[in-house]
Amino acid sequence: MNGPEPRRADASRRADLELALRLADLADGITARRFRALDLRVREKPDRTPVTDADTAVESAVRDALGRARPGDAFAGEESGGRVGAGRTWLVDPVDGTKNFLRGIPVWATLIALLEDGRPTAGVISAPALHSRWWAAAGLGARLRRGPAGTTPVPLRVSAVGRLDQAYLSTTSVRTWDVFHSRAAYLRLAGACWEDRAFGDFLQHCMVAEGTLDIAAEPVVAPWDIAAVQILVEEAGGLCTDLFGGCPRSGTGALSANPRLHRLAVDTLSAAP
């Protein structure tokens, strides 16, 4: 029924989204200063992935700000860890695309998402070196601002392409399919599509939400990698799942697509060789 409850829910979602956008401003202030800095400090984590001083500074600053603004909410981040349970949990990937960041390539972003009982309800992807920011909240749609603060954002909608042989596909790295899923499965999907590229990481999922890409598939993601882009893709009318159609935070990869292509992609990836 229509009435006070839906209006209160919308107001709460807007407040959470506004907070996430402010947190992204905070993160951008740190990452923009450290990008291409001559004294950037880099170390290798146990899994042999790099982490920079910008990663740790952003995560610490966002965690502290959330502790003041939402002291009752849980927190999980790529560098400090944490887990998603019942209730409200903020997930933060301070620099998604750290290898790009440390090499001076501008394709990286801070990802901030709120999960409520395991489902993302708000998310922001902020890529200041690309002058782009994407955001969404449950029931409120998905938006992109390309340009400085104050630029009018535009609503997002996934593509209407309905055939694999007309679809544009992206992944992050073909090599990771050998380790985490199956290179043959990815090549089967790529062979069925019109074109494939490796735009990688957050950007390919954002492009699916924009409708400029049709499918983004990667064999491994962490919860903080995918929560913000999941709500973005869903609010743009698409589907974001794992490679088998389940929860994208299950540890079995991520697949974003418009609804017409999603099942075709799942079936192609799952088909026997």
Rank of each mutant, 00 (worst) to 15 (best):
A149G: 08
S132T: 04
A167E: 11
V158C: 12
Y168D: 11
A127P: 05
L140I: 02
W134H: 01
A129T: 08
A137G: 10
Q166R: 12
A149K: 11
G147E: 07
L164K: 04
L156M: 06
S126D: 09
A127N: 01
T152M: 12
Y168I: 07
A127Y: 00
A137M: 03
A137V: 04
L130T: 03
G162P: 13
R157D: 10
W135N: 05
A160E: 11
G139N: 07
H131Y: 05
A142L: 14
H131L: 09
P155W: 03
Y168R: 15
A129P: 10
V158F: 14
R146V: 10
R146Q: 14
A160Y: 02
R157Y: 12
R133D: 01
G162N: 14
L156I: 06
L169R: 02
W134S: 00
A149V: 05
V154P: 02
V154G: 08
R163A: 15
R145T: 05
P153F: 06
L169V: 04
G139I: 06
L156F: 01
G147H: 08
R146I: 13
L130N: 02
G147V: 07
I125N: 00
I125V: 11
Y168T: 10
L130Y: 02
L156N: 01
P155A: 15
A138K: 08
W135A: 04
R145M: 11
L164F: 08
L164P: 06
G141S: 07
S159D: 12
L156Q: 03
R146H: 15
A149F: 01
G150M: 14
R145N: 04
W134Q: 01
A138F: 00
A142Q: 09
P128E: 04
V158D: 04
P148S: 09
S159G: 15
L144R: 01
S132F: 00
A142R: 05
P148N: 08
G147R: 09
Q166C: 11
R157E: 13
G162Y: 10
V161S: 15
I125W: 00
I125G: 00
L156W: 01
S126K: 03
D165H: 14
I125E: 00
R143T: 04
H131M: 06
P148V: 08
G141V: 07
Q166A: 14
T152S: 11
R157T: 15
R143L: 06
A137P: 04
G150Y: 10
I125P: 00
L140P: 05
T152G: 08
A129Y: 10
S126F: 03
P148Y: 03
P155F: 03
H131C: 05
G147T: 09
Y168A: 11
A167L: 05
L130F: 01
A136I: 02
R163P: 08
R133Y: 07
P155I: 08
A137N: 06
A136M: 01
A167G: 10
Y168H: 12
L156R: 03
A127C: 02
V154H: 01
A167R: 06
L144P: 02
W134P: 00
A127Q: 01
L140R: 02
R157S: 15
Y168F: 04
P148A: 13
R157I: 14
G162D: 15
A138H: 05
